[in-house]
């Protein structure tokens, strides 16, 4: 039992750190602000969630303590991290950070133009 739980905990923490590494590589390698934010907000969230879940299982299965603060942290990061990503992206779009030159679609710009036409 203890060996299996150690294996599961190690797997979760390793998976989380690999996902965080993947997020960091994405931030360095991707071409513009929006794709970079895409990598950072998604993979980093899942990476942190995996590490925290591994920590919770470590406390629960090996130390036999149910640490509610870690669960609360999982819920909190899961709610707030994508919203932080959304707010950063929206702020970047509003001050006119350009899209990658090979981008083909900008629906938000179209929607805003249509709204302006409707208002006039």
């Amino acid at each position: 039992m203890i060996e299996i739980s150690k294996f599961v905990v190690g797997l979760l923490i390793l998976l989380g750190s690999l996902l965080s590494l993947l997020a960091a590589i994405g931030v360095v390698r991707l071409p513009d602000a929006y794709t970079r934010n895409h990598a950072a907000s998604k993979s980093a969230t899942l990476g942190v969630l995996s590490i925290l879940l591994g920590l919770f299982l470590y406390y629960l299965l090996i130390d036999h303590v149910a640490n509610a603060r870690v669960l609360l942290g999982i819920v909190f990061v899961f709610i707030t991290s994508p919203i932080a990503g959304h707010l950063i992206m929206r702020a970047a779009y509003n001050i006119g950070v350009p899209l990658w030159e090979n981008s083909v679609q900008d629906d938000l710009q179209k929607a805003r133009k249509r709204k302006k036409v409707d208002e006039q």
Binding site: L72, V75, F76, I79, T80, I83, H86, L87
Partner: peptide, 13 residues
Amino acid sequence: LILQTATKVVVFI
């Protein structure tokens, strides 16, 4: 809307 809705949940936590 997204920020305000999330705030209403997160503030209690």
